[in-house]
């Protein structure tokens, strides 16, 4: 393993330099797999997954299980500046690095950061990002990609995660890392695991296992690498994820468990009036499926997407 500085720029007079490091494995002249961890300051889970992956790859490389014709880079964090001050986005102007790709080296600060990251990870055959969603909540662990006409759906099952979601991009998605990876020729996946701002160690270990499994299936790691058998992957279009919208504002109490099979009419959760403690709304499933997303906010407004149900009926 080799640790290299891939990006740094001028330090503010009373702060240290902003730096981004990459951890390289195998033949560094080969661009096989790039992994990017946190791009936001509250993505603790995503940094941890990257750290655990680096630890595991060091071990596997030392054991001679890494293909000599492959090169891997892992960038655990592009957001240390934000993480150190407890902000999700770039603290100065609140811009989101993951809305700045492919970046611009003569542009604004986060465009330059994105450019630094992108130059280090583009041209890799496969790109894997530890992602987080713009709505507050937890998903069933899954791998996801943007529909771009360039994506390769056939190998998503190599992660062995239970679900693969194909997202049809909105205009704002065109500046994400996943989208730009694909436009520039890489096969890109985003892994969703656990919450932000907290650590879910079993989910982190599951994500690392999924990446190792992918690397073995793709021939980057030897078939002698010990891996657990993954799950059968169900492919879902994002249009088959049905949101359950609250009709009341108040305190939200989920009842149904993430990953649970639900039937239309099942009670999923309640909204309580915070002042009277009376129930304002009982929230029921509008369709059959798997409970795929649960909002993590306690205080919710009317018309909040409090649950997402994956319609698996057509599969």
């Amino acid at each position: 393993m080799e640790q290299k500085r891939i990006f740094s720029f001028s330090a503010f007079p009373y702060r240290q330099k902003i730096t981004i490091d990459g951890f390289y494995f195998g033949d560094t002249s080969r661009k096989t797999v790039a992994v990017v961890g946190a791009t936001r300051g509250d993505e603790y889970q995503q940094v941890l997954i990257s750290g655990l992956l680096i630890k595991r790859l060091k071990q596997l490389e030392a054991e001679g299980l890494l293909s000599s014709s492959s090169g891997i880079v892992v960038i655990p964090s592009a957001s240390q500046f934000s993480m150190n001050v407890g902000k999700r986005f770039f603290p100065v102007d609140n811009t989101d690095i993951n809305r700045m790709f492919p970046g611009y080296d003569k542009g604004e600060t986060t465009q330059r950061l994105a450019d630094g990251v992108f130059k280090a990870v583009k041209d890799y055959k496969y790109g894997i990002q530890m992602a987080s969603f713009y709505l507050h909540g937890k998903f069933v662990p899954h791998v996801r990609t943007m529909y771009t006409d360039y994506q390769d759906n056939s190998i998503a099952s190599d992660f062995g995660l239970p679900y693969f979601v194909i997202r049809h991009p909105q205009p704002i998605d065109t500046t994400t890392l996943n989208y730009n990876w694909q436009i520039f020729g890489s096969t890109a996946f985003s892994l969703y695991s656990g919450f932000n701002t907290t650590i879910d160690m079993p989910a982190a270990q599951q994500a690392v296992e999924a990446i190792i499994r992918f690397l073995v299936k793709r021939g980057v790691l030897s078939s002698r690498t010990p891996i657990t058998e993954g799950e059968k992957t169900i492919t879902l279009q994002d249009t088959s994820l049905k949101k359950v919208i609250s009709a009341a504002g108040g305190f939200f109490f989920p009842i149904a468990q993430l990953g649970q099979q639900v039937r239309k009419g099942d009670l999923l959760g309640r909204i309580i009036n915070p002042v009277t403690a009376e129930s304002s709304e009982e929230i029921y499933a509008g369709s059959d499926g798997i409970l795929f997303f649960t909002c993590s906010d306690i205080a919710v407004s009317e018309h909040t997407a409090v649950f997402g149900i994956a319609d698996t009926s057509s599969i």
Partner: peptide, 23 residues
């Protein structure tokens, strides 16, 4: 606050909006 409190996306990046999404 420049943005929508408690929401990640810039309000001027969520148009034309939709009934099917969140608040």
């Amino acid at each position: 606050e420049r943005g929508l409190p408690g929401f990640d996306l810039d309000m001027n990046r969520i148009f034309p909006g939709s009934d099917e999404f969140s608040a």
